[in-house]
Design a protein around this nucleic acid. Structure first.
Lengths: 105, 105
DNA sequence: CCGTATCCGAAGGGATACTG
DNA sequence: CAGTATCCCTTCGGATACGG
């Protein structure tokens, strides 16, 4: 029952198809507070295999940018692009709901 | 690397864990415009097996209410609860992003 | 440090048929 | 109409080890 991208006309569904995934959302949450390194993102509770997959997707979609710093040792940082920052309202909405309805237990 | 619910303290992650799923979001989108019947939701592109799973979850979480009407033939309708309506800002944010960044192609 | 490769069991989900 | 049951293939993802 899955559709082709071109067949998805609803903007809600398009966005959800690309980003409605727990690991993706955790990454975006981490990057909201500034750029982060691979290892730091891992510590948020994502194993390297899954983290690589999600980051690749985010970079491909243009919401995250990967920057290599030519240092010794080399350093890599992931950060939100302006397009990525446009997803912050989604995270804010998730936060508002969670705070209001999912605080207990 | 998956956590127990009690270990998830971040409200963003809590909300995402429960609802960040494409089919769930499609259902919520459909219910935004009023209560819908099972068959109608199916026509949004969700097979009955998956639809049942997602609806059960939504009802368990208290964001959707299932109502049986004692008619002939019996009718069942699914609708957002007030808690479910509190998720509308999430859908709005997804919509805004999609309209701005995912319109082409 | 930043990934990639492999293994492998678990879960997901499409199709279809069937029941109250 | 509103689901449930079954089959079966695909994907996911955790763990671990390894490579540039």
């Amino acid at each position: 029952m899955v559709r082709n991208w071109a067949d998805i006309t609803c903007p809600i569904q398009r966005t959800a198809t690309l980003f409605a995934d727990v690991y993706t959302i955790i990454i975006l949450r981490e990057l909201m507070s500034g750029s982060k390194r691979f290892t730091v993102l891992q510590e948020a509770g994502i194993n390297p295999r899954v983290l690589t997959q999600r980051l690749r997707n985010l970079v491909n979609e243009g919401v995250v940018v990967r920057t290599r710093f030519a240092e010794r040792p080399p350093r890599v940082e992931y950060a939100l692009t302006p397009k990525g920052e446009a997803l912050i309202p989604v995270l804010d909405a998730l936060k508002n709901f969670g705070e209001k309805y999912l605080s207990g237990s």
